[in-house]
Amino acid sequence: MENQDIIIQQDLDSVEEILSSVLTDSVYEASINEMCLRVVKSGGKRIRPMLSLMAWHALGDKGEKKSILNFAAATELLHTATLVHDDVIDKATVRRGKATLNETDGNHAAVLAGDYLFTRCFFCIHDINNQRIGNMLNNTLASLVSGEIKQLHTQGNLNISISEYEQTIYCKTGALFELATAGAAILSDENESVIESLQEYGKQLGIAFQVADDILDYTSSSDTLGKNIGEDLEDGRITLPLILALKNCSTEDRLLLEDAIRNVNLDSVLNFIDKTDSIQKSKDFALDAVQKAKKALTSLPQTQYRKNLEELALKAATRSN
């Protein structure tokens, strides 16, 4: 293992300690803590904390180490809280290969657990004592909620445009990646140019990541992905593979595809996606976002950590789970 990989792993281990600590430090909240720990420890990739840590090291390890570790933990808690609420909204039964909280404990308990995870996130942010970080967190949370509402409003809308889709996935995914990377620059006391560069990197990485996720919903398996396949179609979410299929098929085929979508006929929908080469077109869209993410990093010093950020963007777009 390379030296920088060891350093990042050690930092992630410290983040895990923080996550465990903030969810076990009160005997009065033992029941809700146990529920939250089940979700937090269920095997997430920890991409957001990793991004914060890599960006911080790429900028020269400036600022207090405790602050970046708390911030990295906060990004994971915020992400996990939104997943718990998403599972309630989507009526999901499986997440990361395990039963969701709403499946095991019911919707009411799951919503409260998500709320509690938000409070633990705010606890970590409060310890950092940086007003700009706090403001950025608030804006990110507003974007996350806005993205969910946009998605609800466009549910089943077969005329959604690519630009509308891109705005939704930015709010749902890109905004939190943006927080993770730009926050590291703020804690490093960097100038506005560097902060904006890392914001753009996070935004484009988030878009690539979400497009890859939407592709996997039509190409992966439940065992590989850790959740049910075809959920987007079943829930009426019109994502990029479908948008492109609807856009590129003939008038006659579009009528048939629209009927297949409304009737949740996954096999038929997959045939049209394949016929229009929409999976490859979606992959190209994600890879274009990767190139934009890499370009945004050119203002950073040429280090192995910057190279790791570039590689992470590509992995996000080409992942298999």
Rank of each mutant, 00 (worst) to 15 (best):
S278W: 01
T219N: 01
L246V: 06
V290F: 05
L216D: 06
I195K: 14
I162K: 15
A58T: 10
I32E: 01
T224W: 02
D274Q: 13
N3C: 05
N263I: 00
V39A: 06
L53R: 03
F272N: 01
Q302H: 13
Q4M: 09
Q302L: 12
D267K: 12
L309S: 11
L158T: 11
L312N: 12
G206N: 13
E252K: 13
I186V: 15
I32D: 03
A92F: 02
H153T: 03
F122H: 05
S67V: 00
A184W: 01
N129T: 00
L270N: 15
S222K: 14
K292Q: 13
T224E: 15
M1L: 05
T239Q: 05
R237H: 10
S42Q: 14
H79K: 09
Q204H: 15
L69K: 09
N159W: 00
G156E: 04
L314M: 10
I238L: 04
G183E: 08
F209W: 13
T82S: 15
K281L: 14
K41Q: 15
G230D: 08
A317D: 13
L314V: 13
S268C: 12
Q204P: 01
K275L: 10
Q167E: 15
E252D: 11
V27G: 00
L240Y: 04
S21P: 00
D232E: 08
D115C: 07
T24Q: 12
L257T: 02
S163M: 05
I169A: 05
A142E: 09
L69N: 06
G147H: 07
V194D: 01
E258L: 03
N33T: 02
V88T: 07
D232T: 02
D90N: 06
L179M: 09
E234N: 11
H79N: 08
N139T: 05
V145C: 15
K275D: 07
F177L: 14
T298I: 10
K98R: 14
S282P: 04
A289V: 04
D284P: 00
E192C: 04
T276V: 03
G206H: 10
H57K: 15
P49C: 06
I7M: 10
D288C: 05
L101S: 04
I149D: 06
L266I: 14
Q151G: 06
S146D: 13
L112W: 09
K172A: 06
K227T: 04
L117T: 09
L12E: 08
A286Y: 12
N129P: 00
Y28E: 10
L205S: 04
I8Y: 08
A316S: 15
A316T: 08
L23Q: 02
E192Q: 14
A113C: 09
R262M: 07
L112K: 07
N263S: 07
E29G: 00
H153R: 12
T80W: 03
E231N: 15
K227V: 04
I47L: 15
T251H: 11
G202Y: 00
V27Q: 06
C36L: 06
